[in-house]
Amino acid sequence: MPDIKYTAEDDAIIDQWVRENVASTWHSLGTCKMLPLEWKGVVAANMNVHGVTGVKVADLSICPANLAAHTSHTAMIIGEKAADILIKELGLVL
């Protein structure tokens, strides 16, 4: 089988096709992991970003590993926990 020689134009067409047609079917998560800073975590247990004042993260990016559950359920639990934390921190009573 002969080697195929691709031109710069061929590479550009392939690159464009890949950018327009290739996507993930996975739900991205774990980009701001809730772990201790020394374990390369980004978010603390109270959902504060390590080393940043006044910023909390409350979405699927805080998951430290892949999930064995539907991501929508996990997102709802994270939102509920964030609400509980904020209510406590702000001294609000429901």
Score class of each variant (00 low, 15 high):
residue 78 I to K: 01
residue 20 E to Y: 06
residue 47 M to S: 04
residue 4 I to R: 15
residue 42 V to K: 04
residue 44 A to C: 08
residue 81 K to R: 14
residue 45 A to G: 09
residue 11 D to T: 14
residue 17 W to F: 11
residue 66 N to I: 08
residue 81 K to W: 03
residue 48 N to I: 02
residue 38 E to S: 12
residue 28 S to P: 08
residue 27 H to A: 07
residue 78 I to H: 01
residue 35 L to A: 11
residue 84 D to Y: 00
residue 41 G to K: 05
residue 34 M to N: 01
residue 69 A to Q: 07
residue 4 I to A: 13
residue 47 M to N: 05
residue 21 N to I: 06
residue 38 E to I: 08
residue 1 M to V: 12
residue 82 A to C: 15
residue 60 L to A: 12
residue 66 N to P: 14
residue 39 W to K: 12
residue 80 E to G: 00
residue 82 A to P: 04
residue 24 S to M: 07
residue 88 K to N: 06
residue 71 T to C: 09
residue 73 H to E: 04
residue 5 K to P: 01
residue 78 I to G: 02
residue 86 L to E: 03
residue 80 E to D: 06
residue 19 R to G: 05
residue 62 I to F: 03
residue 17 W to C: 07
residue 39 W to A: 15
residue 40 K to I: 06
residue 54 G to K: 03
residue 76 M to Q: 08
residue 74 T to V: 14
residue 82 A to F: 01
residue 45 A to K: 15
residue 59 D to N: 04
residue 14 I to D: 04
residue 85 I to K: 00
residue 47 M to P: 01
residue 81 K to E: 07
residue 93 V to Q: 06
residue 67 L to I: 12
residue 62 I to L: 10
residue 40 K to M: 06
residue 84 D to C: 04
residue 59 D to A: 01
residue 19 R to E: 11
residue 17 W to H: 10
residue 8 A to N: 14
residue 72 S to E: 07
residue 7 T to H: 14
residue 56 K to H: 10
residue 11 D to S: 13
residue 77 I to A: 02
residue 49 V to M: 05
residue 21 N to L: 05
residue 9 E to S: 11
residue 16 Q to T: 14
residue 74 T to A: 01
residue 10 D to H: 15
residue 87 I to H: 00
residue 65 A to H: 05
residue 73 H to P: 13
residue 59 D to L: 00
residue 67 L to D: 00
residue 16 Q to M: 09
residue 72 S to G: 08
residue 39 W to M: 12
residue 45 A to T: 11
residue 19 R to P: 07
residue 40 K to G: 07
residue 54 G to W: 04
residue 66 N to W: 09
residue 2 P to N: 13
residue 10 D to I: 08
residue 70 H to E: 09
residue 39 W to F: 08
residue 53 T to V: 06
residue 45 A to V: 08
residue 88 K to I: 00
residue 31 T to D: 10
residue 85 I to L: 04
residue 46 N to F: 04
residue 13 I to D: 12
residue 49 V to R: 03
residue 25 T to W: 05
residue 38 E to N: 11
residue 3 D to E: 11
residue 2 P to D: 14
residue 25 T to H: 05
residue 85 I to N: 02
residue 6 Y to P: 08
residue 77 I to R: 00
residue 93 V to T: 10
residue 92 L to A: 15
residue 4 I to Y: 15
residue 64 P to Y: 11
residue 6 Y to H: 14
residue 73 H to K: 05
residue 28 S to M: 13
residue 90 L to H: 01
residue 84 D to R: 02
residue 69 A to H: 09
residue 84 D to H: 03
residue 33 K to G: 11
residue 26 W to L: 10
residue 68 A to T: 13
residue 90 L to R: 03
residue 28 S to G: 10
residue 80 E to L: 00
residue 54 G to I: 03
residue 12 A to K: 14
residue 38 E to Y: 06
residue 87 I to V: 11
residue 22 V to T: 04
residue 86 L to K: 02
